[in-house]
Amino acid sequence: MTATAPGGAEDTAADRFLAQLQAFEGRPAATTGQGKDPVNEAMIRHWCEAMGDANPAYTGPDAIAPPTMLQAWTMAGLSGHSARSGAYDELLGLLDGAGCTSVVATDCEQEYLRPLRPGDTVTFDAVIECVSPRKTTRLGSGHFVTTRMDIRVGGELAGTHRFRILKYAPAAPRPAGPPPAAPSRRPERPRRPRPVVNRDNQGFWDGVRDHRLLIQRCASCATLRFPWLPGCNACASLDWDTVEACGEATVFSYVVMHHPSFPAFDPPYAVALVELAEGVRMITNITGVPYDAVRIGTPVRLEFLRVDEDQELPVFRGEAEG
């Protein structure tokens, strides 16, 4: 029995192509891979220095590797990995042939199941987990491809790493020439990019919805942390609760964005790293004062800014001088 797509022959061809792409789901993207170096103290030290992470758990005779280094031990470098499968290359080739010749990484998720220690030899396998229907983005239209890598030590699963890319056909550039005639009604303002909400930060966005700025607090050592993380970067505990910020802060550092111009943003505007009264810092917009009046040390106060019909964001308002 043959199904007929509502849109006719064009939709049927698209459906057939999607089925061809999704036939790759479950096929290997990499097999029997091995890290090029064992987990080692030098790499851990470099990582921690770059990240500014002085957690004592990452040094000394009982050191573990920072969990977020999970992917670092599997990376191929310039010489590549022999573990990469032909199926993944074939999938990307099909997308190239359909005009989806550009690629951008969109997001990744990691799950940590076992600490990695200096001397561990990492092995890994990867599978093509999901190919999305064709999606249209501002960059162009194409398909999201998600791979899942299972990382093991001595056969024991140490963690998983999901990595998602968009293979897309670039959107056509706007034609040169005079601007189009003014529309009869005011055009709808472009919406701001949506934040990525996942299981690690859902509580933060729930707080924003209720006009509360919530900071994670470790249930073991009471260290506050922001942005939200799965575990404490001071004692590695996975248990946490929250405290509500009082709303007072000062500008710790800032930049003024002049270009490039993005839809839904009106440059120039100030983007600041503010230090909350509780001691943590966050990146935010500064409202209430001109962009060129923002200074390091400027006191600011929390407010919630509605940027479109379904998105509200925490920002900080400075007081204009009288």
Rank of each mutant, 00 (worst) to 15 (best):
D89Q: 14
S184D: 08
L313P: 00
F226I: 03
A83F: 01
P67M: 08
H46R: 14
A30D: 00
I64Y: 01
T287L: 13
R138V: 12
D310Q: 04
A222L: 00
M69F: 01
G142N: 11
S85L: 05
A270E: 04
T68C: 07
R134A: 13
V315I: 09
Q202K: 15
D308Y: 09
A57M: 02
Y269I: 05
A172F: 01
G97K: 13
T136I: 08
S141Q: 12
R225E: 10
T146Y: 11
H161G: 06
G279Y: 05
A272G: 09
G52W: 00
P38F: 04
V251F: 12
D15N: 14
Q110L: 14
D150I: 07
R199Y: 06
N201M: 09
I286E: 03
E90I: 04
D241W: 11
M75P: 00
E41I: 13
T160W: 01
P67A: 06
G279I: 08
R189C: 07
E244H: 04
K36P: 02
R152L: 13
R199K: 14
F316K: 12
A249G: 07
I296R: 05
L94M: 12
A76Q: 07
P314D: 08
G279P: 04
K167Y: 03
T146V: 15
R317E: 03
T59G: 09
P115K: 01
T147C: 12
E111S: 15
V122I: 15
D125Q: 13
L302E: 02
V104D: 14
Q202N: 14
T74N: 05
R191G: 10
G155S: 03
P175C: 02
A98I: 02
D89R: 15
A57T: 01
P179L: 13
S237G: 04
V39A: 02
T121Q: 14
L166V: 03
Q110K: 13
T74P: 00
A270D: 05
N285E: 08
L273M: 09
V243H: 06
R185N: 02
S85G: 05
G247R: 01
G142F: 00
S261M: 07
S79M: 08
N285I: 07
A320N: 11
L116I: 02
V271F: 03
D125R: 11
V280Y: 10
V39S: 10
I64W: 01
R317K: 15
L157W: 11
I215G: 05
C246E: 12
Q202A: 15
P61Y: 06
V315Y: 06
P183C: 08
Q34G: 10
V274F: 00
R152A: 15
R212M: 02
P133V: 08
P260M: 08
V208R: 13
R27M: 10
A171K: 15
